[in-house]
Structures are given as C-alpha cells and as structure tokens.
C-alpha cells in the first residue's frame, strides 16, 4: 500500500516534468536561447574584457562574481553549521572509545607519506593555473583538503592536530569570503564598482593578480573548511 502510494506520487511528479522537459529547446542545439543570448558575449569577449583566459574563470570570478562570493559564503556557512552543532558535544564519548581501534596498514601509511608532497604541488598548480586552464581555487582547495584528511587517517590525534595552523586557524577558515570581499573593495577603489576588475592592456597584470588572489583565497579557505568539517565530525571517534 505504502509502496503503491510512493510510486503514484513519483509518477505524479515525473510525468509533468518529463512533458515539460520534452518541450524545452533541444539540448546542445546551436539555436537554443542558452547559446544565443548571454553566452556568446562571454565567449567572444570574455578573454579580453574579463581578465582571464579561461572563460569559466571569467564567468565565475568576474561576470558573475557576486554569485561566487555567495557560494563561498555557503561553504563557510556549512562549516559554521557543523561547528555550531557538534563542537562541545562529544567530550564524553571520546573517553569511552579506545584511542585507535584498528592500526593503519604500513602500506597505506607509506604511500600517503610518499605522495603527500606531490599532492601539495598538484593542488598549488591547480589553484594557480585555474586562471588559464580548467581548475581553480575550488578544485585545488579540495585536493589539499583531501590530503589533510588522508594524513589525519594515518596519524595519531596529536600529530593530526598539528597539521592545521592553530593560531590563525579561524582567519584561514574564512579565507575565501575574506579574499573575495578584499578583492571586491580593491575593485571598488580602482574602477568604482564592487568586484570590478581593471580592463585594458596596461592593467592586465593588476586584473590577473586580483583574480589569482581570489583563487588562492578560495583554495586555502576550501581546504580549511573541508579539513575542519572532517576533524569536527571525527572528534572523539
């Protein structure tokens, strides 16, 4: 009975959706409004007027920079949410569970240690090169965050705690929105518009530096957020 109801409900939602989607402009068609209205301008003029050779970066950080500022704020919100709900709650259970239930295999430990410097290098490459090729702060930050998680798994809690800088930790967690807002205000001073980037040949370097600064901020902030969420959720495991 319950299953029949669920199926009926899903059909009631799915059928109108399918009918509607069938009537949308065909996917990938060159005549679809998605390809003929706003997008051509990004493709044709993005490289010169938005300061980034990679069009995706131009859209994310420049044309629609305010959205991305909002998105990095969403990521920060997720971390604040995890901390607000979990911090200070698990202190009791931490004492009950044995410190390490299962020793980590030597092979895993060895491979993570060997690969760590290369992973760091690759994440820096992805962050800095996002300006030219696909990639950027989000992706590079995730790679670095994943490395912190991998290292946490093979280390004791005390060693793992030293992985993240203790002192300016809370500033670094907010690095992405902070870098974004700082760049936005710099743009306001240079061009008169919030999140404006200087255009033109002679100021290309300034625009590139501003974009790179945002990318680094997103990368550092992203890595810190991922590592912090992981550590908070694993506290007292």
């Amino acid at each position: 009975m319950k299953r029949a109801l669920v199926i009926a409900l899903l059909l009631a939602v799915a059928v109108p959706l399918l009918i509607a989607v069938a009537d949308l402009p065909p996917h990938g068609s060159p005549d679809a409004p998605a390809h003929t209205h706003v997008a051509p301008r990004y493709l044709e003029r993005g490289a010169e007027e938005a300061g980034a050779e990679n069009i995706v970066t131009a859209v994310i950080l420049n044309y629609r920079g305010l959205d991305t500022l909002g998105e990095v704020t969403v990521i920060f919100t997720a971390m604040a949410a995890v901390l607000a709900v979990l911090v200070g709650a698990r202190a009791v259970t931490a004492l009950d569970t044995p410190a390490s239930a299962l020793p980590v295999s030597m092979i895993v430990r060895f491979i993570v240690r060997v690969l760590a410097p290369f992973i760091v290098l690759f994440s820096i490459y992805v962050v800095l090169n996002g300006h030219v090729t696909p990639g950027g702060g989000f992706q590079g930050g995730t790679i670095a965050g994943a490395l912190v998680i991998a290292l946490t798994l093979i280390m004791s809690d005390e060693q793992a705690a030293r992985l993240l800088p203790r002192r300016p930790e809370r500033v670094l967690q907010a690095a992405a929105p902070l870098a974004f807002i700082m760049t936005g205000v710099t743009g306001l001073l240079l061009t008169g518009d919030f999140l404006g980037y200087p255009v033109g040949h002679e100021s290309a370097l300034v625009a590139t530096l501003m974009l790179t600064f945002v990318e680094i901020g997103i990368g550092v902030g992203g890595a810190m957020v991922i590592a912090t969420i992981f550590r908070t959720m694993g506290a007292g495991r």
């Binding site: 044309y63 743009g187 518009d193 999140l195």
Partner: peptide
Amino acid sequence: AGGWEVPYGI
C-alpha cells in the same frame, strides 16, 4: 556588480 551591463552581470 562589477560594472557590467544588465543581462551579463548580476
């Protein structure tokens, strides 16, 4: 934001 014209910027 960013000083763009209307449908291109936010």
